[in-house]
Structure formats: C-alpha cells, structure tokens
Design a protein around this nucleic acid. Structure first.
Lengths: 332, 332
DNA sequence: ATGCATTGTGCACACGATTACACAAACGGT
DNA sequence: ACCGTTTGTGTAATCGTGTGCACAATGCAT
C-alpha cells in the first residue's frame, strides 16, 4: 500500500498469498477465461492490496504481441507533424497501445535507431518521415509490415500506405492567384530531395503548366521559419517574383514576414504567399495564411484504420488516398 | 536477406545454423564477454545473413532492465513543451533508451495510462505534466523513482525533481514595464489550479508588491492562442488594463493579436504584453515577444543528469534548480 | 444411482534471451 | 613431465506470464 515496497511482486508470490496457483492468478486478469467468480474477486482484492500488476514484458514474450507501436517522425517540435502525432497518440492510447517515438532528425543513425526499435518486437510501425526510404523500413521491420505515410510510388506487398493528393486544391489556389494578376512564380522547397517535396511541387507546377505558366525559380529551405525568411528575401529582391508557393506553413510565415519587414511588400496585393499543411497556427489572426491543407482527423483516421486491418491480420497491401483542400486566408 | 522471411529467427535456431550453443550466440552480442574472436566473427556473419537481432523483450525480462523511459506530457503539439521533448528524445536515443510517450490531455484516464506504462517495467519516468500529482506518480511507479519536473514543494525520498525559479527575471520585466508608465496589470492564467501556474503568477505578483502595486484582475485561459485572444478582449475592453502577463507565449501572441485587431492598441506603447516559456516562435519577427524564458538546453541537461544518477543507483532525493532569464522583445 | 457435460483449478512447458557453474583444452613456467 | 592459470564453450536454471492438458468436482438428465 505505502511506498516502501521497492520490488514489484510477481504472480507466483501473489499465488502463494492468495492460496492458489500462479496459473489462476493469470486467469483472474484475463477477462474471458474459465475461473470461478469468487476466486477472481478474492485474487483481485489481494492483488490490489499488494499492488500487483501483471508484467507486460513477460506477457509480451509469451504472447508474441508487445502492444508497442513505433512512430518514426522527423521531429517532435515541428508543428506540421505535431498535431497529427498528438491525435494519433491519443487514438493509440485509447486502444491500449503504447507509442515509442523514433525521432530521426539527423541522418547519421536513423537506421540504427529503427533497428533498435525493431528489437522490441513492436506490433506496428508508422513512418511519418520522408527521410527514411520505404525499402529500409521494410528490411528492418520485415516482420511487422510497416504503415508508411508516403508519397513514393510503392508497389510492395509488405507495406501499407497512405497517399495524399493535393492536385485539385493546388489548381484552385493557382487559379485565384493568376486571376489576381500575378505572373512570376517561385517554389520554396523544404528539402532538396524528398519525394514528398517533389510531389507537392508537381501539384502546383501542373496547375501552372495548364495555364501556360511555369515556376521561374526554385529555392531550397529546411522547413524552418528562418529559412523561409532568408530565402524569401532573395527571391523577392533578386528574382523579383510576385508569388511564392512554400513547402510548408512555417516557411510561408517566415516568407510573409520577410516581405513585409525587409521589402515593405504586403500580401496579397504586392505578392502572394501560399503555405502547405494547414496547421492551426496558419489560421491565427496574425497569420491568416492561404494554404493547401489536409484534414488531420481524416488523416489519422486512415492511419488507425490501417492499424486495425493489420491487427485483424487481413492480408494484402493496403492503400488509402486522401485529398487536400484549400484554406483561404489573406496572403493569396 | 530478402524480405520473404516472415518470422523472426531465434537465438537457438541461429545456434544450430552456426554450430554452437545459444549461450555462445548471446556472448557474441555482449561486448565484453569471454568468447573466441573467431567464433564471434563467424556468428555475427551468420547473424547478419539471416537477419538475426537479439530479442529485447526477452532480454529485458531476464535483465530486469527494459531501457524504456516513460515521458508523461500534457500534449505533443503544444510548442512550449515540444522543443524540450524533442531535445530529450534525442538525448535518450543517444543513450540507447527508447521513450514511450504518455499524453494525458484529458483528465479521465491519466492514472489508467500511467498504470499501463508502469506495467512495461520502464527504467525511468519523467513527468512534465502539471496535471498529474506527485503522489500519484510515486504510487504508480513505486519501483522506478520518477523524475518530476515540478513546481510543487516536495520532500519525498522517492522522487527526483527539477525546480524552476523565475523570480529575478520577473522582477526585471515588471521593473521595465512600470518605468514605462503602465499601471493596471492583469494576469492571464493557463489553468485554474495547477502549481506551475500559481508559482509563475507569484513571481510577478511579488515583483508588483515590491513596488506597491498588485494585479487588478486575473483571467483564466487554457494555454491556447484562442483563449489568449478571447480573454484579452475582455481584459482590455472591460477592465481597461494596460499590461497583461500571460501564462505562456502562445496565449501572449493571441492577446497581442486581440489588442491590435479588436481594439486597435499596439505594444508596447498602448499596452504591455508578456509571455512565458521562451519558445522559438516568440523570437520570430512577427511576434518579437518579451517573455520570461528558460534555457531549454540547460533544462534537458538537468533531466539527463538526473536520469544518469538514477542509472548509477545513487541513493537519496535529488533536486536541481534552474533560473529563468528575460527575453526582451517589442511587446513590453 | 449412473452416465455425461460443464466448471474450476493445478501442473508443466513455452516464450527468447542471459549467466553462474562446470569442464575441456591450451598455455606457460619450473 | 607436471601443475596452475587462462580461455572458450556447453548445460541448465532463471526472468514472469499464458495456456494446453489432465483431473476432480459439480450439475443435470435419465
């Protein structure tokens, strides 16, 4: 009861205390299992008294199911992912699944880290990061069938995936900007070589092509506010563009600040700025960003659905496609 | 080698393949352990070929050490915590420790969740949330000695804690605002009953008292942008205050937007607005907040130090105190 | 009263690794 | 040539649960 008992009590010890065998202890904690209700009540009472809880590590070893889920993410602080992470963690916890976070910001030991996690026999793997290749994930978690939130074209039996399509929304946004009279477009990438960035850029590039236009310049940032600010100064000053499509919302906010502060240009009259992600901050009054946004709830619903199919051991590759929508703000 | 092997290979099977006993397999993977180097090399080669990795669950059961760390946090998306979480996760991973995230936003099943995690025999527990009481944490993780980032006064042998002191910095900030001629102060709390909120408020209240002043009003939000915005409208319009000290940076940004947009008042001339936390966003050009900030790196250093002491099984309660500094922006 | 289905419990093994102990082989010194 | 030490490996127990199997006890129908 009080906090002086250092070591955790085991099922065998509790069995002795309750005058039964350790098998019966185990059954008392299994909801549907042949055991007399009187015995169960007595055991649960004794268990509570001595602070007994079945050891999940031992159970996992026996069960071949750990109820652990590995979440591979780029970063925790980054708002574009954080909202989804938060949602997913809640949904997992509601199912009594515990999330292990693998945060692979720096390139060096991503694979090492994933190997370490695979050692813990995680039941599911959700890869949010575009920094890890599908093939690596499949090789490392070859026993688990990862769920990959990917923009890579993939035709692998051993992967489930969520595809995201923003072409229509991008078309709507470009349409409005062109009708507003903007002519010189720049794309500000978040990374220089990820599939997700290439695909996002393609959505907008296609919309431009359709109207006989094209990106005049492509700049590269790192998804951060500072990089958005810095690159925007160059784009506006040196390249004289009047519309910047950014790889995410945070860079778009940086670009907007740069335009206003450094060059005295305002949105949407002087220049148009567009973000991507649709994070909550984009809708704040001080930002009011026009952005290509994804419904976070629908997105996480899809992830959870894949996890459940996986739990039910339904075979075959699974793929879910989601479409983005435009959020209209005052920056474009 | 290729991805067709569904099941994971065990040490006993690998032993047969390599013509040794399973004990020798284990030794091949223990860095300092009596084993012939030729044997080790051969085993590692065969292991690589068959994709063998020792099962961490089984090892944990035997070792009585899981190398899992429970992180109890309020939210993942919230920037005030996210930066620290990110840092800590990296530091843990560098030590081959895997973080399990417990996100207890809604009151209902926080204890349930912590009990579930304790079942996994986590080696360490770090409690960031002020939503869970120290006593609950100690009771549930009675075998682990939690590390609590707390503002509660605590004298418990079974807890290590990190205390945070912002009284000096609060004094500096109040000093400047008073010298700027502001007279009517309001405090905008993030919660209505947490220790952390009470203590933060006290730092500023003491500084006011020292100068013969006091808070005229106290409002309550929920640490969100929207609540900052909404409460600030009331404070400025109804109560006519000219200085608002906010419980965190995000609410301060909301308050600043409300002042500017709804009432046409600007900082720092018409009103002063102060945040707390010192998140990266506070320094963005569009915000440029004056805020009571904590050095994130020093903070996480302290957490890691406590974890290491705990690992080394140094006995006794441990407490580390950190002091905040003022970050000067254009809002006060 | 007998036969059969049902219920409740214990025994013993499996899960996959680590490790104390035992023992054979190799080695070095006199 | 002999003995003591070091080195390398196998055997078997252990960590804490879950569960198939066996078996006693109970209930029910004839």
């Amino acid at each position: 009861m009080s906090g002086m008992s250092r070591r955790r009590i085991t099922s065998k010890e509790l069995a002795k205390l309750a005058g039964v065998s350790s098998a019966t202890i185990s059954r008392a904690f299994s909801p549907d299992s042949r055991i007399g209700s009187a015995t169960r009540d007595r055991i649960l009472a004794v268990a509570r008294e001595h602070g007994y809880q079945p050891n999940a590590i031992a159970r996992s070893l026996n069960n071949q199911r750990s109820r652990l889920v590995a979440l591979v993410v780029n970063a925790i602080g980054n708002p574009c992912e954080a909202e989804e992470q938060q949602l997913l963690v809640h949904r997992l916890q509601a199912r009594q699944l515990l999330p292990i976070i693998l945060c692979c910001a720096d390139h060096s030991d991503r694979l090492q880290l994933m190997r370490l996690a695979s050692t813990y026999q995680v039941d599911h793997v959700v890869v949010f990061s575009d920094m890890v290749s599908m093939q690596d994930a499949v090789d490392i978690f070859h026993t688990t069938k990862p769920i990959i939130v990917s923009f890579e074209p993939l035709d692998n039996e051993n992967v489930s995936s969520i595809r995201i399509d923003g072409s229509e929304a991008a078309d709507e946004i470009i349409d409005k900007i062109v009708r507003d009279g903007k002519k010189r477009f720049a794309y500000l990438s978040g990374t220089n070589s990820s599939w997700i960035d290439k695909l996002r850029r393609k959505w907008f590039a296609d919309a431009l092509t359709k109207r006989g236009l094209a990106f005049e310049t492509q700049a590269f940032g790192d998804y951060s506010y500072d990089s958005g600010f810095k690159e925007a100064v160059l784009l506006l000053h040196r390249d004289k563009v009047d519309a910047i499509i950014c790889g995410n919302d945070v860079m778009a906010i940086g670009a907007r600040d740069a335009a206003r502060r450094v060059l005295g240009k305002n949105t949407p009259d002087d220049i148009a700025i567009v973000g991507q992600d649709g994070i909550a901050m984009a809708a704040w009054d001080c930002n009011d960003l026009t952005t290509l946004s994804l419904d976070h709830v629908a997105f996480i619903d899809a992830v959870v659905e894949l996890i459940e199919r996986h739990d039910a051991e339904i075979e075959g590759p699974h793929s879910i496609t989601l479409t983005c929508t435009a959020r209209w703000g005052s920056t474009a």
